[in-house]
């Protein structure tokens, strides 16, 4: 049983790492701020999500797992907010030009 759980952790965390790598590449390579924001939020949402899902079965206690999920939720909230604010500020600047 523990082998299956460990396999799941390895697969999910590796998947998360791939999203972080892709997000970082996008952040460095994409041409404008909107696409860069898109790349960044993918790393936050999916990358961190997969890492959290992968680590969940490794937690000793239910409260530890809930804390992990809370962290994911809070990062989702802050990432979505920050990218919205940045994107709106960019749109406003483009309109003024």
């Amino acid at each position: 049983m523990s082998a299956v759980i460990n396999l799941w952790t390895v697969i999910a965390v590796s998947g998360g790492a791939v999203f972080f790598l892709a997000g970082t590449t996008g952040l460095l390579r994409f041409p404008d701020a909107f696409t860069r924001l898109h790349a960044l939020t993918k790393a936050d949402n999916l990358g961190l999500g997969l890492v959290v899902l992968g680590l969940l079965p490794q937690m000793d206690s239910v409260s530890g797992g809930l804390k992990l999920l809370c962290i994911w939720g809070l990062v989702l909230l802050s990432g979505a907010t920050a990218s919205q604010l940045i994107a709106r500020a960019l749109v406003r600047r483009d309109v003024q030009r």
Partner: peptide
């Protein structure tokens, strides 16, 4: 009604 006001209502209790 913007996103900042939304977060400022959701986040402080947490």
């Amino acid at each position: 009604n913007g996103i900042l006001a939304y977060v400022a209502r959701v986040l402080p209790p947490i």
